[in-house]
């Protein structure tokens, strides 16, 4: 298990490094000069040359990539173009808001989704099974930012039940301000997870080891939890692991729509200001978290199902 974990970790580090390299290469191959982008069309050639130098853009491409990797090891992601503050500091100030938002979203939706999926598989064709089937088709076809707009429209504008602007003050305020955003991001995952768990439960229920457990007279509850669900939950775990990327995309919209602080709002603001170092730093941190989430979900599956440890 440890060997497997280490191998997977090494691969993840390489993937993140390649992702960064791709971004830096893209910056080079596309027409246009980031220095000109930042300074605007009327900047003097001297100023452009100076900015290029301070951003390290005058160096050859491989050197730039290596310098960037070296700086990351020192925890240095570059400097804000306007305020000269450390990008790492700015990004890590905003990151907790986003992490809390997507964790809450995925926790409530995965818990409800797995429960609904289990129930639907064990009690097929009951009204709750049918309802969750219809609900999942309906919610999956609504993109999260449209869902967020409707959440604002219905619960904040029409009903006036919940606030729709900002992240709130204090613990109580933060929780109340988190409800609508977490709902908007999570709702489509409930249906997704429920359908997936239902389908894989039905498949696993027909496996030989389940029949054997039943023949041995194990209690139904024990069979369901430790012999069926343990295997049947795996596709959902993979789905959530790879879904973290979608969660970050959804967080961008939800943070903008609910005027919340967070890494998504930071990226949008920095794109508007053409603050390239912050965009690069924020994309890098997001990508690293996504790769880490995929790694964790693979390890969870390896822990749930020893058969998976063999393959890399």
């Amino acid at each position: 298990m440890l060997r497997y974990a280490l191998q997977r970790f090494a691969l993840s580090v390489v993937i993140v490094m390649v992702a960064i390299a791709i971004l830096i290469v893209m910056l080079h191959v596309v027409p246009g000069d980031p220095a000109v982008m930042i300074l605007g069309p009327r900047a003097t050639p001297e100023l452009i040359a100076q900015t290029r130098q301070s951003m390290g853009l005058d160096q050859p491409l491989p050197i730039q990539i290596l310098t960037f990797f070296g700086n990351i090891l020192h925890g240095d992601l570059g400097r804000d173009v306007f305020t000269n503050r450390s990008v790492a500091q700015i990004v890590f100030e905003q990151l907790p808001y986003t992490l809390v938002l997507i964790s809450v979203a995925i926790l409530w939706s995965a818990a409800l989704g797995i429960a609904l999926g289990c129930y639907s598989a064990l009690r097929r064709n009951t009204w709750l099974d049918t309802l969750s089937g219809i609900l999942s088709v309906g919610t999956i076809s609504i993109p999260s930012f449209v869902m967020a707009l409707y959440a604002v429209l219905v619960f904040a504008v029409w009903l006036g039940w919940l606030p729709s602007i900002g992240a709130g003050e204090g613990l109580g305020g933060s929780i109340i301000h988190l409800i609508l955003p977490a709902f908007a991001i999570g709702i489509s995952w409930v249906g997704y997870v429920a359908r997936m768990v239902r389908a894989s439960m039905l498949e696993v229920m027909s496996y030989a080891h389940v029949r054997m457990a039943r023949a041995f007279g194990l209690r139904e509850r024990l069979i369901t939890t430790s012999h069926i669900l343990r295997i049947a939950v795996q596709p959902a775990v993979t789905l959530i692991g790879t879904g973290v990327a979608h969660l970050f995309s959804a967080a961008v919209f939800v943070e903008v729509i609910f005027a919340r602080p967070g890494i998504g709002a930071l990226i949008v603001q920095s794109v508007n200001e053409r603050n390239y170092p912050i965009v690069l730093g924020a994309v890098l941190v997001t990508t690293a978290i996504i790769v880490l989430a995929t790694l964790i979900s693979d390890l969870v599956i390896a822990w749930l199902d020893p058969r998976q440890r063999e393959e890399l």
Binding site: M37, A245, H246
Partner: peptide
Amino acid sequence: LLIFDALRSFPTIVFGLAVVTIIG
């Protein structure tokens, strides 16, 4: 394969925003 994996680890919208910073 490595490049594919790296590209897949960008969230579409976040990657899109990075590209917008570069080419508008």
